[in-house]
Amino acid sequence: MKTFETLADLAACVGQDVAITEWVEITQQQVNLFADATGDHQWIHVDVEQAQKGPFGGPIAHGFLTLSLLPQFFDKTILVTQKRMGVNYGLNKVRFMSPVPVGSRLRGHLHLHSATPIEGNGMQFQWNVTVQREGSDKPVCAAESLVRIYA
């Protein structure tokens, strides 16, 4: 965990790779629960038997499940001690470059692209997040994530 006392301390890291997360395993149970939560029950995600005969040789995680790991990645790697709250402000760009087979382990690489002061004694941070699958050279996801933190 990287700890920063103030928003300015974190902002001083613009242009740097700030953190690499621990590995997170993607299970079939997570995929099934995500399918239930979103209504996306496509067979490549939830029908293990059919997915084994499909193009990926087994079930794969939803792209949006992979994307939904971003808050966890931030929460487990970066702490600003002098803050009231943080909110997800959105995404500028997201790409899913390769599938995530169930049983894969993923981790996030967090690069701070910019920090901009905002009203309410806060700062908007743009993070370039790359999600890597263990054993693969090709990222599974890349996203520009906007996070607002208020002191």
Rank of each mutant, 00 (worst) to 15 (best):
F125D: 09
H45P: 00
V129W: 08
G15L: 14
P71Q: 15
G103Q: 05
D17C: 14
V94F: 03
K93D: 12
G103W: 05
R84A: 05
F56V: 12
Q42G: 00
Q72L: 10
S114L: 05
P117A: 00
M97H: 06
H109L: 12
Q30S: 13
M123P: 10
L65W: 05
Q42I: 00
F34Y: 09
A8V: 06
S104I: 05
A142G: 07
D17V: 15
Q42S: 02
M97E: 14
D40L: 00
F73N: 06
K76P: 00
V140L: 10
L110P: 09
N121G: 07
V46Q: 00
E144L: 14
R84P: 06
S145M: 07
P99A: 00
K2Y: 11
E144P: 12
H41F: 02
D47R: 11
E25D: 01
K53W: 03
D47L: 09
A142V: 14
F56W: 04
A11Y: 04
I44C: 03
V129C: 11
Q50D: 05
V100E: 01
L69M: 08
V14N: 15
S98P: 06
H62C: 04
I78H: 03
M97K: 12
A142N: 11
A143M: 13
Q50S: 06
S68Q: 09
V100R: 05
L110M: 08
D40Q: 04
L69Y: 05
A142M: 13
Q132A: 12
I78K: 07
G39K: 08
T27S: 15
A8L: 01
A151N: 08
L65I: 01
G86I: 00
Q16D: 12
I149G: 01
V94T: 13
H111D: 10
T116V: 09
M123K: 13
D137Q: 13
D36T: 04
A12T: 08
D137E: 12
A51W: 03
P59Q: 07
P101S: 07
A35D: 03
R84I: 10
F73D: 01
A37H: 01
T27L: 08
H62W: 05
L7G: 03
D17E: 15
C13T: 14
I60E: 09
